[in-house]
């Protein structure tokens, strides 16, 4: 019950972050929202694992944390050195 309430709160927060990711004026706003969505996904995995009495979901959460971190840095580096970043070009 308690876990379900916290899960719902995290999902609502993730919906708000999706709104910012769609709306964000710069690439970095979207990236910031994506990073926060990843953190929310980790929490959703952990909470869902506890809710359904299957804590193996935590392994998925750990993997997702690693991927999220590496992915954020990959995109940042791409926009810093690649040619697609409209802001980074000048």
């Amino acid at each position: 019950m308690m876990l379900a309430a916290v899960l719902a709160a995290v999902l609502v927060a993730m919906a708000l972050m999706v709104a910012r990711a769609l709306r964000g004026p710069t690439t970095f706003d979207r990236l910031l929202a994506a990073n926060s969505i990843g953190n929310g996904a980790i929490l959703v995995l952990a909470l869902f694992g506890f809710l359904t009495e299957r804590p193996e979901f935590l392994d998925l959460g750990l993997t997702y944390a690693l991927l999220n971190f590496v992915g954020t840095f990959a995109v940042l580096k791409f926009f810093r050195q690649g040619s697609l970043g409209a802001e980074a070009e000048e």
Binding site: A5, V6, A9, V10, V12, L16, L32, A33, S36, G40
Partner: peptide, 12 residues
């Protein structure tokens, strides 16, 4: 959960 909600509102 409260901190997460406040942070999400702040992002917006």
């Amino acid at each position: 959960a409260g901190f997460i909600l406040v942070g999400a509102i702040g992002i917006n």
